[in-house]
Simulated scan of single mutants.
Amino acid sequence: MAAVTIIGGHGKIALILARILSSRGDAVTSWIRDPGQSEEVAATGATPRVLDVENASREEIAAALAGSDAVVFSAGAGGGNPERTYAVDRDAAIRSIQAAEQAGVKRYVMVSYLGAAPDHGVPESDPFFPYAEAKAAADVALRASDLDWTVLMPGRLTLDEPTGRVDPDATRSADNPGTSRANVALVAASVLDRPDTVGKDLPFTDGDTAIENAWA
């Protein structure tokens, strides 16, 4: 059994992930910003904790992470507001990385996106630009840390049913098949138990390879 903290605990991926982890016996704490989301989070088997990572200091985040074995960062501003996108997807993410180091939590899984990189190629005129910039900066900070990190890079997210199968060689394109949020949750749960995914970027869309055999 592991103690796992999910940051961004009310997101669609996080809610599915919390249920998967709780059902296999892990002790899950899901961080949320709105106390009104507590009941839905608790229904997954996770323990809800109200902590606004957008405004929390590194020290506050580190204190809240004490006792965790692993962190999954699945928070996001949701787009539409560049200032909040940078505040959550970049700044809060980087503070949480630093806080995990401070708290001695070694395992850290970042939910990013397929194509995330400093040379992402998104023009500044594109509304997606702040998100692309923010995720690139957070991913770079994680790779430079002393943590046992993994960056998940799923394609376009869908609400389809999980298949448990991915294409681990996927590259970003306008016509890629995407992947379900449930598949992303399955991948996150799998890599938490897989030392062979430490220090790796994991691109994927839906495909034909069983998750447990991907990236081996």
Rank of each mutant, 00 (worst) to 15 (best):
F204T: 00
V122S: 02
D175N: 08
A2K: 10
A216H: 10
D160A: 13
R84N: 07
V71H: 11
A136Y: 07
R84S: 10
R165G: 03
I6C: 14
I94C: 10
G207Q: 04
K135I: 01
T5I: 14
V191F: 10
Q102P: 11
G115H: 07
V109Q: 04
G36S: 15
V53Y: 08
S145T: 04
A136F: 02
E54K: 15
A103D: 14
D26F: 11
G9K: 15
V151G: 01
I97P: 15
S112M: 07
D52R: 14
E59T: 05
A185E: 03
V198G: 04
K106P: 10
L65R: 11
S38P: 15
V72K: 03
K200H: 12
A2V: 14
P118V: 05
N213R: 10
V198C: 14
Q102T: 13
P154H: 06
S173C: 07
T209N: 00
R90P: 12
A2Y: 06
V184R: 01
D148L: 15
K12I: 13
P48N: 00
A99P: 15
A185V: 08
L186W: 09
R49A: 00
K200A: 02
F73Q: 12
S74W: 08
V187D: 05
D52G: 08
A43I: 14
D119H: 14
Y131P: 11
D193Y: 03
G67D: 08
A216L: 04
A56T: 08
L159H: 10
T29V: 09
A174Y: 12
V105N: 04
L51F: 06
L65N: 06
T163K: 08
A64E: 09
H10P: 03
A210D: 03
P123K: 04
F129E: 06
S180Y: 03
V50D: 11
G199T: 09
S57C: 05
A64S: 06
D175C: 05
T197R: 09
W149R: 12
D175G: 01
V105Y: 03
R58P: 01
G164H: 06
A2L: 15
T171L: 14
P82T: 11
S22K: 15
D139N: 15
N213F: 00
K12D: 06
Q98N: 15
L147I: 12
R165T: 07
S68G: 05
K106R: 12
A182V: 07
A42R: 15
A185T: 02
F204L: 03
I32S: 04
Y86V: 15
Q102E: 09
I211K: 01
A63G: 13
V191Q: 10
D193S: 13
A132Y: 00
V88F: 00
S30Y: 13
D196Q: 09
R84K: 08
T47N: 12
P48M: 00
D52E: 02
S68P: 08
A42G: 07
L142Q: 06
G76T: 12
D167R: 09
A66E: 14
W215R: 09
D206H: 09
R143L: 15
D69Q: 11
E39K: 15
E59I: 03
L17D: 09
G67T: 00
A87Y: 06
S68L: 05
G104Y: 00
E60D: 04
E60F: 03
V71F: 01
S96H: 07
